[in-house]
């Protein structure tokens, strides 16, 4: 096992899937010679050539529309949108075609593509480079929305996403790309899409998060532990389709929950999680479920982003509030 950053782990997933399956084609802006602006596709054009690692003209609609055609033909395109903030250009291709080709053709044509895009704040980036708009895709029937939280699960989930028979939007946190290393096995490893994981056990409170918010959430759990509160921490991994079994089960034991995300609060993924908990565990609730989220504003330019992004203190404070009631 090698210790890898998330960038390296994603690169490993792509490389191994490309070695195994010649249907896997990468395309996007600067993914070839440059190896992607974050270097996720580094070295792949050298190994697989420019027919399998395709530098495209600068057009997101083009990239996604073309991926749909390639996927319908039987290939497994993995396209990169350089920043999720530029995936709105290709919105209609996802909504009108990728998400519903199977449905429209009653199962005859399918779109097994992956759209990878860096998302989220915290890296002092220019405007339009720091947003978390996973709710758009999670809200679109026919799309799967996956967000890993570390090198190892990023690798395993990306492999599963590539092999999935349906379109998957795969958001990668820029803040996590090089934040830490984890052991990532050389041999194949997958994780099922649509299955959250318990990453810390506890019986006093359920903390539910995903992506870049996992680290502050785990840190908050540690701080709460110092106060004698044992928080269970759950990583969603897949935002949509959301499997709430584990979440509901956790809440039946803890009776209290805090949901954390960087995306704006209103109509965000947290709202869906809370609804599912209400539906599934209403009689076990001992306190109103709290949300710790980004505010309902555009994420500010970077000098103020720290105050926008949910912090450990905010999560701890929300946890304490649920415990007081």
């Amino acid at each position: 096992m090698a210790k890898m950053t998330m960038v390296q782990a994603l690169n490993l997933a792509l490389r191994q899937e490309m070695e195994k399956d010649d249907r896997v084609i990468l395309l996007g802006e600067d993914v070839g010679l440059d190896g992607g602006v974050f270097r996720v596709t580094d070295g792949l054009i050298e190994s697989f050539g420019d027919q399998r690692v395709v530098d495209t003209p600068l057009a997101e609609t083009g990239i996604v529309g073309m991926s749909i055609g390639m996927a319908v033909y039987g290939l497994r395109p993995v396209c990169e949108i350089q920043f999720s903030g530029f995936s709105y250009q290709n919105f209609h291709q996802l909504e009108n075609h990728a998400a519903r080709m199977r449905w429209r053709t009653q199962g005859r044509l399918t779109v097994p593509m992956v759209l990878r895009a860096p998302y989220g704040g915290g890296v002092r980036a220019l405007e339009h480079h720091s947003e978390s708009r996973e709710a758009y895709w999670a809200h679109t029937p026919g799309l799967k929305m996956v967000i890993p939280s570390g090198p190892r699960n990023a690798r395993a989930l990306l492999v599963s996403a590539i092999r999935d028979p349906d379109p998957v939007i795969f958001y990668e946190s820029k803040a996590l790309y090089r934040a830490f290393r984890e052991e990532v096995p050389e041999e194949e490893e997958t994780l099922p899409l649509g299955q959250p994981q318990v990453v810390r056990q506890g019986s006093d409170l359920s903390l539910i998060a995903y992506g870049a918010m996992m680290r502050p959430t785990l840190k908050a759990a540690e701080e709460l532990a110092e106060e004698g509160v044992e928080a269970e921490v759950i990583d969603l991994l897949t935002i949509s389709p959301l499997d709430d079994t584990l979440l509901v089960e956790s809440l039946t034991r803890t009776g209290r929950a805090v949901v954390v995300h960087e995306a704006p609060r209103s109509f965000g993924p947290g709202a869906e999680v809370v609804s599912r908990l209400m539906e599934g565990a209403f009689h076990y609730l001992q306190a109103p479920i709290e949300r710790v989220t980004g505010y309902d504003i555009v994420i500010p330019y970077f000098s103020r982003e720290k105050e926008y992004i949910p912090s450990v203190e905010r999560i701890v404070e929300a946890g304490r509030r649920t415990l007081r009631s």
Partner: peptide, 27 residues
């Protein structure tokens, strides 16, 4: 940091105003 709430709309909706006040208290 509270400046981040300025100019999103001509008038900040009540729920967002409440978020701004929560941040002010936190700060």
């Amino acid at each position: 940091p509270l400046q981040m709430f300025d100019h999103l709309f001509a008038e900040l909706p009540p729920a967002t105003q409440a978020q701004k006040e929560a941040l002010a208290r936190e700060l």
